[in-house]
């Protein structure tokens, strides 16, 4: 078990900076997610922690030891690659035994392999070659191979992205339980925000080589640090409406017909012209324009099925949201601090 610290890391490829001055800490035994769109630098960061790339500036510290220039094999980390990187010429058994063999493990290799493979439920497939396995089985093999030698840090690079949607969901569940059971510090790269929210103890949202926000899933969802995080997290994303150099934001599921609220609540009222309705079973997504006191702009509302009456397409209805659910962002898109919110709110209301 170990703490992983990333200290002021910058990575340049020629003139291009893939990572600019990033610092963060993966806490001991916790699940940290690196989340961001493709090209945000999250995989590069993971590869530097693994020792596959050398940071241009800054240091990687693993378990209190500076590891920046350590060879990957000397870091006691394990990594699950996006394509699983199973050795095609070896059987599943040999794949899992590989880390033990190359490290000259002195104990009972057979016992360790059986233990690791039974943990992920592939103990009956040991004689197969990787190409004879399904995607889910390969992913489990990669997991078994990475945990067989008790690494102190677990790195996972989009390990679920090659699975189909249904399998991905159950694999996510297993992965989370599995991590809790063995309690290894885990760093997990993904571009899928649902995966990130479901798996992470903490999420680090990255974009353009910098950390946009680091926090628990709740913090990131409820109080996005900037408009990028606000629009990247949540499906559909947070409604963002620009108004006099500021941006106000509200989640679609917080934006409901006025009748859905208790009249005693502190509400912000507006009008919503519905242009299209999508039925998603449990929810309905309403696309339309807000107006009235706000500058006319596109917005989305997500209404749970418990709200019986829907406004019809083409009509304008009274909609509202709680004042406490509104988020404010300044001209650069940064979230306005709690202390300054009051001020901003007055401006919007006035």
């Amino acid at each position: 078990m170990a703490l992983v610290e990333v200290k002021q890391i910058t990575k340049k490829f020629g003139a291009y900076s893939a990572i600019s001055n990033v610092s963060l800490t993966a806490q001991d035994g916790k699940f940290l997610i690196l989340l961001g769109p493709s090209g945000c630098g999250k995989t590069t960061l993971l590869r530097m922690i693994a020792g596959l790339e050398l940071p241009t500036y800054g240091d990687i510290v693993i378990g209190g030891k500076v590891a920046t220039r350590l060879h990957p094999k000397d870091r006691n980390i394990a990594m699950v690659f996006q394509n699983y990187a199973l050795y095609p010429h070896l059987t599943i058994y040999e794949n899992v035994a590989f880390p033990l063999r190359v490290r000259g493990f002195s104990g009972d290799i057979d016992k360790k392999v059986k233990w690791a493979t039974s943990l992920v439920g592939i103990e009956h497939l040991l004689e197969r070659k990787p190409r004879q396995m399904s995607g889910g089985e390969r992913q489990r093999t990669a997991l078994a191979r990475s945990l067989v030698r008790d690494p102190s840090v677990f790195l996972l690079d989009e390990p679920l992205s090659n699975l189909d949607a249904k399998l991905r969901h159950s694999a996510r569940e297993e992965l989370r339980q599995f991590q809790e059971r063995i309690g290894v510090t885990s760093i997990y790269v993904t571009h899928d925000q649902v995966e990130a929210m479901g798996l992470g103890d903490r999420i680090c949202v990255m974009q353009g080589g910098v950390v946009r926000q680091l926090g628990t899933p709740e913090e990131i969802y409820l109080n996005p640090a900037d408009t990028f995080v606000a629009s990247f997290i949540g499906s559909p994303p947070m409604n963002l409406i620009s108004d006099e150099g500021r941006t106000i934001g509200f989640r679609p599921e917080m934006f409901l017909p006025e009748s859905a609220f208790d009249p005693s609540e502190a509400l912000y009222r507006t009008e919503f012209t519905v242009q299209r309705i999508e039925y998603l079973g449990g929810d309905r997504i309403l696309y339309g324009m807000v107006g009235a006191s706000l500058p006319s702009s596109k917005a989305i509302a997500r209404l749970p099925a418990t709200i019986g009456t829907l406004p019809e397409v083409g009509t304008t209805a009274k909609f509202a949201m709680r004042l406490s659910d509104i988020r404010y962002f300044d001209g650069e898109g940064k979230a306005v601090e709690q202390s300054r919110r009051h001020e901003a709110r007055l401006v919007v209301n006035g």
């Binding site: 995989t43 020792g51 596959l52 790339e53 050398l54």
Partner: peptide
Amino acid sequence: EPNTDLPG
């Protein structure tokens, strides 16, 4: 594939 760039 990204190229590995290790010391040595």
